[in-house]
Design a protein around this nucleic acid. Structure first.
Lengths: 138, 138
DNA sequence: GCTGAAGATGCGACCTTTTCGCAATTAGTT
DNA sequence: AACTAATTGCGAAAAGGTCGCATCTTCAGC
């Protein structure tokens, strides 16, 4: 299985918990630590929340997962390879929509040109009001 | 003093705590609830943290202050009239820079046109790496 | 200026989320 | 098989924020 190499190659030990945390993040798309723990418990009921937190941190350090702030307070974790879209969070209904990163390309470039700021647009959600929640005007 | 009218006009009672919270937010530019409390305590030592939280919420409901997520976890509060800039948060050094809202105008417009999403760019910080923390290349 | 009712405050308890220390266990090396 | 260092589980506890309740204050009406 390639996944073993993937973790070993990053200099990480291969523990059942660690593999399960990584595959839970991948399976869930995006998830809070609590949700990851719940998913992992389906096959490994005894896993401790601390272990989930520590593994998410470890996996983030080697670049296999990343976290994003969607607003409420807690971070949500993504597999690194999935982080190819912006998150459009609706402040009214709470829904999280996606938009391609390219939608922000000009914005990112102008911040780089004008302020020397290298933007990671996926780290924070884009906050606003989704089309379904905007009152229709006449 | 005009400030009294300002609060009364919004239908709020005028309490020393409320006035102090509002002027603390204005004086600080942006601040966490904890920082607001600390500021208020300079002239009103007994103020309770709950009161600060409740007043920030109340003031936000009537539109005098707004909160922004700068990343770490806690929200930071701004006077509404000051919220005319983006926040560029550096993930390396933690600094918070400003950029005019206009820098995002095209981005906001394209999200509106393509996704019907009405963006509030000030609500979340823009995350990335500031010019001082980008390694110089040859 | 008093008075009463609605609203605000202070206080403490409590909840959620995340971190930490430590002893026991386990992975990977030799 | 044995050793060492990383990892886990567990409980305690740090942050950050909310809530109920008794007391006190604001402000409208008199």
């Amino acid at each position: 299985m390639a996944e073993q190499h993937e973790l070993r190659d990053k200099g990480l030990r291969l523990t059942p918990q660690r593999e399960l945390v990584l595959s839970a993040v991948r399976a869930l798309g995006h998830a809070t630590p609590e949700e990851v723990a719940e998913k992992v418990r389906q096959s490994h009921p005894g896993i401790n929340l601390s272990t989930v937190y520590r593994n998410l941190e470890t996996l983030e350090n080697v670049g296999l997962v990343q976290h994003t702030h969607l607003g409420h307070g807690g971070a949500t974790y993504h597999a690194a390879e999935e982080l190819t879209h912006l998150h459009l969070v609706c402040g009214v209904c709470g829904s999280v929509g996606d938009a391609p990163i390219e939608a922000a390309a000009n914005f990112v470039n102008s911040l780089a040109d004008d302020y020397g700021f290298k933007t990671d647009v996926t780290h924070f959600a884009i906050y606003g009001t989704c089309s379904a929640c905007i009152p229709v005007e006449d």
